[in-house]
């Protein structure tokens, strides 16, 4: 296998409160291969978005990275100076924010925001930047690009704005695109369009993608591989098909049952996992999931299960659901 585009090892982030550090991310480890789409899935607060922000080094106090290595095509990002890191953001890692209504600067034209971004990273004249910007607006499927170029954000709909956010993230042709809940803030009808667009752009450009979502449906549609987050840790990682077909971790199985899906007789069934994910600073000892887990034994309460390396489908659980099919 070739060198991963992104290699994250043992990434830990803490939140400092009253002089004490509370873990927010704990030993997060994963790879993204060239051209691969990795889905990060989990509940709100599980640390998915935090992972994205930590990779581009935009954590702000009271959040702080305490350990871990982040390598982009072999280059250690965690050792770069702030100045060189600014050259990585936008140029080599594109980032799509969740809410298109607040991601665009309200008082600058779309064209200005696009050309500023491109000219920061690419040696373009004003005219070339404008041409490219219009080409990008066309590429993300916007009608009448010259009009959109001159428009202010408030003149556009949420779906149009999210297309622009995607164009802004991709316009300097990064090696990796991090998309943080790119469809969550959109109408359901627009969500499908946006996923199709991301898929198409991914196939055209070959950019590797890290897709952060809480929606297993989005994962099933988009991701090659999945990393499941729970309470700041990766608890299961597997190729999408295997994970959805036969999850190993009880939490993953629970998450799938909590996703509305029609069963055999066509009725929609949802089964919620009892309890709630522990908040920051309230992690139980042992496996963070054990208070909600039906299979928990004594060891789960005492010792934290490591993410076992089991050849591509790894789970951090002492009693994984082997050979069992989720009903």
């Amino acid at each position: 296998m070739s060198e991963p585009v992104l290699k994250v090892r043992d990434l830990s982030v803490v939140l400092e409160r009253n002089g004490r550090d509370f873990p927010v991310l704990d030993g997060v480890t994963f790879d993204i291969a060239p051209g691969e789409v990795l889905g990060l899935v989990g509940e709100s607060g599980a640390g998915k978005s935090m992972t994205g922000i930590a990779i581009i080094d935009l954590l702000v106090p009271p959040l702080r990275r305490t350990s871990g290595t982040i390598a982009l095509s072999g280059e250690r990002l965690d050792q770069l100076s702030a100045k060189r890191m600014r050259r990585v953001r936008g140029k080599r890692i594109g980032f799509v924010f969740q809410d298109p209504m607040t991601s665009l600067n309200p008082v600058l034209s779309i064209g200005r925001q696009l050309t500023d971004t491109m000219r920061r990273h690419l040696p373009l004249t004003r005219g070339e930047a404008r041409e490219r910007a219009i080409a990008w607006l066309t590429r993300v499927g916007l009608a009448n690009p010259p009009r959109v170029f001159a428009a202010a954000p408030h003149e556009l709909s949420g779906g149009q704005r999210q297309r622009i956010v995607i164009a802004l993230a991709l316009c300097a042709e990064p090696d990796l695109l991090i998309a943080d809940e790119p469809t969550t803030a959109l109408d359901v009808s627009v969500q499908a369009h946006m996923l199709t667009l991301l898929r198409e752009l991914h196939e055209e450009t070959g950019t590797a993608m890290m897709l952060i979502t809480h929606d297993l449906g989005v994962i099933a549609k988009m991701a090659d591989r999945v990393a499941v987050f729970y309470a700041g840790r990766v608890i299961e990682t597997a190729p999408t098909g295997r994970l959805i077909g036969a999850p190993l971790h009880p939490y993953t199985a629970g998450l799938m049952q909590a996703t509305p899906a029609p069963d055999a007789d066509g009725a929609m069934r949802v089964r919620a996992i009892p309890g709630a994910m522990p908040g920051i600073g309230a992690l139980p000892p042992g496996c963070a999931f054990h208070p909600r887990c039906e299979r928990a034994q004594a060891i789960c309460r005492e010792e934290r299960p490591p993410l076992a390396d089991a050849g591509g489908h790894d789970a951090a659980c002492y009693f994984p659901l082997v050979e069992e099919v989720v009903s």
């Binding site: 594109g94 980032f95 600067n105 802004l168 993230a169």
Partner: peptide
């Protein structure tokens, strides 16, 4: 958020 996004684009 839009300033964070501007930072994330390396401006």
């Amino acid at each position: 958020e839009h300033i964070r996004f501007a930072r994330a684009r390396g401006l």
